[in-house]
Design a protein around this nucleic acid. Structure first.
Length: 645
RNA sequence: GCCUCCGUAACUCAGACUGGUAGAGUGCGUCCAUGGUAAGGACGAAGCCGUGGGUUCAAAUCCCAUCGGGGGCUCCA
């Protein structure tokens, strides 16, 4: 039995003439035709060998979708063209009537269209992911599956129909496959034990297992309770960093000056990190033609949805990573084995993924995001493994540099994991705590293994930051090759790497980390090198304004982001506002301070004021920002000149 | 995409159940005050009550649709 299932705004049909001599005569009412609104239309072919069980199973599958899409009614529409192995017409009518009866159990208003007639019809399909489904149910599939899986679980072909025209977003094969592939979870300890995740004792080191336990629970999807809005959303608005822009598409954000500054600093830090690591920086186009042969295959193997852009008659998709541009460069390069591993880096501002609207969440998941994306061409799997381990280490260093706590997962094909178990254990030892391992029987995407460092937020939900994957498909797709020692051309394995993860996600993690600190009674703050204001000058009265201007100029000359609260407000209020803005160093300037040359400095997080000279303040900032990038502040240094956003 | 909650001044929110001239705090403006480490005082301006329909003599309020945001599901290289 074959079904083409369409969730439609409406379908209207009208019988025209008999297609089968044996077709039953129609009543005048039936001849007029029918129009049905908000309906799941089941174009149905009954095949030789279909029986009651097939009908029941098909109905069960349809019932689930029918309930999921909340359609008003159902229409069974006999449609012979779905199969080349049709049941005899008389039998088909029996099956049709029986099937209609069965579906009426959950859709009492279900109708059936006449059998054996040519019918004209017009319909409008809704076009959401569940709106277009095809199903094949046969007695063999039922028996076959029942045998393999035991019990009642029956799997049938149930594929989301790809859109027909290339201009429509491609529903990736990988997306479908990923849904179908079953995986198993384990915990790998630094000692090398591999324990099924559900029997691992998270409290063995005492306590509740902390973030790792939360992370594993999150991954295994056992514990998903109601949680409130993630803390970073409120913070990003309060601090005038980032905001929603309803004039754009969901998941495309506006970065205000202070947020832009933080983001720019992070972008510089991670780009420098990658260049220091040995990657060549490039910049590539953000859109690519759908019909390009190398891209077509890759699109299908990449689990993401795309934005589509039209230009004249051509259709382009917006990139969801830097792979496209970099691989197309690699294809045209002449590469010797002597140059491997060869690294290329791009800060993608932006990468685009048309995530489902319900998946978007503040800075954690966006449709347009900035990803530092690095690719490494390796000589062979051995070199890929070595480089993977190096990049695992580099990613870990980066997270340590950012002081962002993380939990790690390795995802791998089962056989690859078993062959390389010691290699995984060694990396686990590097981070010195248990990691999660997810094993797949078959590969659903282009990589054989990957790791992620995940951040666990205040709502106990995980978000991937660093990740490295070993890609064994795309050298072929893109025809990337290098010349080996013996002069032959070879296809390299390629590493896909994001050392930091999306920059927006780094901001998310920083804000969440501080929100968590605050909820534990700590003082939330930005690292000094990321603070929009590093030093704030607060005069006691207008009499100290001139002195403050001088100090301000001196600090700015030393590449310190200083500002000056020259508003006509009380000193107490200025101190309060500085605290609310998380200003790291707030310097009160009065007559005493001018006379002594030592400012009364509130150091954020410290209970007592300190008396520091301007030079000492400069040193303090310089020391704390050692090895970190610097960028200028783009809002006016005088607070009276600074607008509210 | 589905389910659900929410959308009122620049911001944070009350008002809605029970329809009848739009409320507070913050911010902003003017004036007074010139201060010693988390909010000095007075006055003032500021609203297509997300958008579009409907019901009603009358809609921020009730109904429908739609857009945007949060959460749940699905999803997350």
């Amino acid at each position: 039995m074959r079904l083409l299932q369409l969730h439609c705004d409406y379908i209207a049909f009208k019988p025209k003439s008999k297609a089968l001599k044996t077709a039953a005569e129609l009543s005048p009412e039936e001849k007029k035709g029918v129009r049905v609104e908000d309906v799941v239309v089941l174009f149905t072919s009954f095949e030789a060998g279909d029986d009651e069980r097939v009908l029941e199973e098909a109905a069960r599958l349809v019932e689930k979708d029918f309930r999921d899409v909340h359609a008003a009614t159902l229409l069974v529409y006999p449609y012979a063209h779905l199969s080349s192995n049709l049941a005899p017409p008389a039998r088909a009518v029996e099956l049709l009537d029986e099937f209609t009866k069965i579906v009426r159990r959950f859709a009492p208003s279900a109708q059936r269209a006449p059998f054996g007639y040519y019918k004209e019809f017009e319909l409008k399909c809704k076009g959401h992911p569940l709106a277009e489904l095809s199903k094949t149910v046969t007695s063999e599939t039922i028996e076959g599956k029942a045998e393999r899986l035991g019990a009642k679980q029956i799997v049938v072909e149930d594929a989301v129909k790809g859109k027909e025209k290339s201009c429509e977003a491609v529903e990736s094969e990988s997306l479908k496959k990923e849904a179908a592939v079953k995986s198993k979870f384990f915990v790998l300890t630094p000692e090398g034990e591999l324990i099924p995740a559900d029997s691992f004792d998270f409290g063995r080191a005492g306590g509740d297992g902390g973030d790792f336990a939360k992370f594993v629970r999150y991954e295994l999807q056992k514990e998903r309770v109601y949680v409130c809005e993630p803390a970073h959303i409120k913070l990003m608005k309060e601090h005038e960093l980032v905001r929603y822009e309803s004039a754009s598409d969901s998941g495309n954000f506006t970065w205000l000056p202070k947020g832009r500054l933080i983001k720019r600093l992070l972008e510089k830090a991670i780009s420098d990190f990658c260049v220091d690591y040995g990657a060549m920086e490039v910049e590539t186009p953000i859109m690519y033609a759908f019909d390009h042969p190398a891209l077509k295959k890759y699109l299908n193997r990449f689990p993401a949805r795309q934005y589509v852009v039209k230009s004249d008659d051509r259709e382009f998709f917006l990139r969801f990573a830097a792979c496209f541009g970099q691989f197309l460069i690699n294809r045209d390069m002449t590469i010797s084995y002597k140059q491997l591993p060869l690294k290329m880096y791009e800060l993608t501002r932006y990468s685009f993924r048309r995530e489902q609207s319900g998946e978007l969440c503040g800075l954690k998941r966006l449709r347009a995001f900035t990803m530092p994306d690095m690719h490494t061409i390796c000589r062979d799997l051995a070199q890929a493994r070595e480089e993977f381990a190096n990049q695992f280490d580099a990613s870990t260093q980066w997270q340590e540099f950012m002081e962002i706590p993380f939990e790690t997962v390795f995802r791998s094909q089962t056989d690859f994991f078993e062959e390389n178990r010691e290699w995984y254990v060694k990396m686990t030892r590097r981070i010195g705590k248990p990691v999660l391992v997810e094993l797949f029987k078959e590969r659903y995407a282009y990589f054989i293994t990957k790791f992620e460092h995940n951040f666990v937020d205040t709502a106990n939900k995980a978000a991937g930051l660093s990740t490295v994957q070993i890609d064994v498909e795309n050298a072929d797709n893109y025809e990337i090759s290098f010349v080996d020692e013996d002069g032959s051309k070879k296809r390299p394995p390629i590493l896909h790497t994001s050392i930091s993860g999306a920059v927006e996600r780094v901001v998310f993690a920083l804000l969440e980390r501080e929100a968590a600190a605050a909820s534990r009674g700590g003082v939330p703050q930005f690292p000094l090198w990321l603070s929009p204001t590093q030093v704030r000058l607060v005069p006691i009265s207008e009499k100290q304004n001139a002195a403050c201007e001088e100090i301000l100029a001196a600090l700015q000359k030393q590449n310190i982001r200083a500002d000056f609260d020259d508003r006509s407000e009380s000193m107490q209020k200025k101190v309060r506002d500085a605290e609310r803005e998380w200003v790291p160093l707030t310097c009160v300037v009065g007559e005493k301070e001018i006379a002594s040359g030592k400012l009364a400095v509130r150091v954020r997080g410290k209970p007592k004021q300190e008396l520091l000279s301007v030079q000492e303040i400069e040193e303090f900032v310089r020391n704390a920002c050692e090895g970190k990038p610097f960028e200028k502040m783009s809002v006016p240094a005088k607070l009276s000149r600074r607008p509210k956003f």
